[in-house]
């Protein structure tokens, strides 16, 4: 479907859409997830502190979990598409996996931070550019 061709702001139904987001429904959950994801992404891109970048990654992962769980909720009474089998809980299970992966990621990421800090006494990416040029 062609969704990107449409102007996002100059749209007649936009205000209705935004007003509709203030109620508990699938679209509003997804919109919340998108907003949190964007904030996390912004944190990763803009911050220079490795620790904060890692925390921002966690925020992004949480946003993704939110989206998964919302869809799991919306899928619960729907049968699988033709030729596929899935459990509606797949979304929640995936969110669990994300928690596990996030834990692993945090462990390794923080270990790297510690190792790096021990050698260079810094966690600032402006000082971490041995790969430059």
């Amino acid at each position: 479907m062609d969704v990107t061709g449409m102007p996002i702001l100059a749209d007649a139904g936009l205000m209705d859409f935004v007003a509709g987001l203030f109620s508990f429904k699938l679209v509003s959950c997804l919109a919340l997830s998108a907003a949190i994801f964007s904030i996390g992404a912004m944190g990763v891109l803009a911050r220079r502190n490795v620790l904060v970048m890692l925390i921002s990654v966690e925020v992004m992962l949480n946003a993704v979990m939110l989206a998964f769980v919302s869809f799991a909720r919306a899928m619960v009474n729907l049968g699988p598409p033709a030729g596929k089998t899935f459990a509606a809980e797949g979304g929640q299970i995936f969110a669990l996996f994300i928690i596990a992966v996030a834990a692993a990621e945090a462990a390794v990421g923080l270990a790297i931070v510690i190792a790096y800090f021990r050698n260079r006494q810094t966690v600032d990416t402006r000082d971490i550019k041995a790969m430059r040029n």
């Binding site: 479907m1 990107t4 997830s33 912004m42 891109l45």
Partner: peptide, 16 residues
């Protein structure tokens, strides 16, 4: 970048 990303997802969600 974050804004465009969020906007894209929102637009997709809204029309999808």
């Amino acid at each position: 970048v974050g804004g465009v990303l969020g906007g894209l997802i929102l637009s997709f969600v809204r029309h999808g």
